[in-house]
Write a protein that binds this DNA or RNA. Sequence first.
RNA 1: GGCGCGGUCGCCAAGUGGUAAGGCAAAGGUCUGCAAAACCUUUAUCGGCGGUUCGAUCCCGCCCCGCGCCUCCA
Length: 470
Amino acid sequence: MSGETEAFVPLTPGEVRSYTCGPTVYDFAHIGNFRTFVFQDVMRRYLKSKGFRVIQVMNLTDVDDRIIQKSAAAGVSIREYTDKYIQAFLDDRRALNLEPPEYIARATEHIDDMVKLIQRLTAKGFTYTSEGSTYYRIAKFPAYGKLSKIDVAGMQTGARVDMDRYDKDNARDFALWKAPKPGEHFWETPIGPGRPGWHIECAAMALMYLGDTLDIHSGGVDLTFPHHENEIAESEAATGKQFVRYWLHAEHLLVDHEKMSKSMGNFATLRELFSHGHKPSSIRFLLASVPYRRQLNFSPEGLQGAASSVERLRNFVLRLRTEKFPEGISPTMAERAATAKDEFDRGLADDLNTAQALAAIFDLVREANTAMDRGEFRQGDAAAVLEALETFDAIFAVLRDDDAEKLRSLGIEPASASLSDAEVETLVADRQAARKRRDFAESDRLRDKLAERGVILEDSRDGGVRWKRK
RNA sequence: GGCGCGGUCGCCAAGUGGUAAGGCAAAGGUCUGCAAAACCUUUAUCGGCGGUUCGAUCCCGCCCCGCGCCUCCA
């Protein structure tokens, strides 16, 4: 609200009540949308790692003009129409390793709550009706504009204000409840037949699940105005209390330096990226690696770079797990692991500076690799370093989960799909035997054969070999 | 026009009043039977102009450029 970074102090110690503006389920979500959802996931994972009990509510807007229009055009019910996209959205979330919120609230299942909230506002004189619709009278709420810092008075006469087909007292007033147009689906309620306005759903559901004052409310920057401003107007007028303690808005994902959006047609869905062979971990890493308040220009090169970064991290973990180091521990390494964890945390603690946090991890990776190459790394250090990596992955969640099973279910056919672990082991053993005979022609033939199936071999100094799937 | 975000190495991106993290990419090298992986080396004076200061990329002013919101939008 202040527009500045502030120390986070939840209303109830140890507990974070958080509301997330979810998608309008009229179509598949695109990765611009997921930029925000990944940010919210990083935030909730970080808060949890700091010991907070997180209660996150995410809404699904499953009724609006587009949905009404499209479902009618498709000749199916709103429910049926939105079910499909809700399912797809939840699948996409799983693919990206987004933790499920504690509550997922569907707008059409909370019509009663919205009606009650509107009635409360009416009782306090914040509403008026016109042609069967109910509107919010912003003139009654002097604080209007405090979040987006919009000067309402100055806007009213502007050329670009709503040329509305509705009859409102003031162009800035917004609909709480919309009267049905002929043939449209509607709900019969005490305030008349119709359907909810957009903002009332979030206000009603947030208050219902989380109480009058929530700790965190987050969403994309484009929601700041009018959506969040209107939510404030609705809820604070009704409760008389502060609605949200901390607002966090994620910046946009850009494509060729323009906002990715459905209307621009410059969007990509996750399933499209998957079908081009991109892994969920690459996408998640890319979206998470740029701090949320920075615009992120999306490009295939960037995605490739993210994939390489994840690869480097995974190679490192593989090395930690498979290489044999001299017994004992080296005090300096244990210390390095500890400071890396501290630095990682320091980055995140500063308004979720993921870029800074990442640097701490990569520093550790390089230094540990160097120690290994020099023979200064000890077996006892592996645990400490792995622990630091786990701290990292508790937030970034990119180290696992690109297993063949998962990729296949996402429509990515791994090159190595046709080879089982046992088959790989057999071929690897054959090659080792060939190497022992110094039959390098045969050895290389087997290695190439494995490579064709997406299996990469790494020989180690001690004559051993480890393998991984591409 | 109002409000907001940003302009740092080829790309992505931290950061601090005292001469600039990290990742990706590129080139050369080390290791290796060859690879792979890893490591080492090389690549920036921080949009422009003024000002404050012993000293500014970081503070102030002006200017230029990009993006967004102000209408549905993560």
